[in-house]
């Protein structure tokens, strides 16, 4: 099978553009959220695994209140839904509602629906926040992890939180604050 040199070159240029487009579109999306997104503070709870492809990071665990709904039968386990976000009286982010359609106003995140104990214990829907990894320098991640654990064991709720920017359902995890200091500065 002999294919013309020119055809191969054109095919390669097309493939190369697609190959470049993937990481560039990821960067573009995240940069636009980073520039124009609303800032939210998500309170964390305690837990440093090693991702073979992506180096060291802190695993974050959040305080998540399940959402009360009238009828859990309308929802399938694992389906994607729009979860609305607002700030509570203490200034922390709170997931306060769920809808099948894109909310017209207010910020939201697109997440998977989890229903535990369907019909037995209350009518609530759970979810997993899509930003549970904060990547760090390999040598500093362990120290930050220890400080993170310490801050979370203390009962003071203001000890640790994640700073997340949200715009049109997209998010960027900007920082993790532990005891008032950015995790990046914990050395």
């Amino acid at each position: 099978m002999k294919i013309n040199k020119k055809t191969i070159l054109i095919l390669f240029i097309f493939v190369a553009i697609v190959q470049l487009a993937v990481p560039i579109s990821m960067i573009y999306k995240k940069e636009s959220v980073s520039k124009g997104g609303e800032i939210y503070k998500f309170q964390t709870r305690p837990i440093d695994p090693y991702d073979p492809f992506r180096g060291k990071y802190i695993t974050l665990n959040f305080d998540r209140k399940p959402i009360e709904v009238e009828n859990t039968e309308e929802w399938e386990n694992g389906e994607m839904a729009f979860f609305t976000i607002k700030e509570d009286s203490l200034g922390y982010a709170e997931v306060n509602g769920i809808s099948k359609s894109r909310p017209e106003n207010g910020d939201f995140l697109k997440m998977k629906v989890y229903i535990y104990h369907r019909g037995t214990i209350g009518k609530t829907i759970s979810y997993t926040l899509p930003f549970d990894r904060f990547y760090m320098n390999e040598n500093e991640a362990l120290n930050a992890e220890i400080e993170y654990e310490k801050a979370n064991i203390n009962s003071n709720k203001e000890n640790a939180y994640a700073v997340v920017k949200i715009l049109d359902g997209e998010h960027v995890l900007e920082d993790v604050i532990i005891g008032g200091v950015s995790a990046k500065d914990l050395k």
Partner: peptide
């Protein structure tokens, strides 16, 4: 490498 590095820079899970 490119995709995993961008994921790391922007904490994309």
């Amino acid at each position: 490498l490119s995709i995993s590095m961008v994921s790391q820079i922007y904490n994309i899970v």
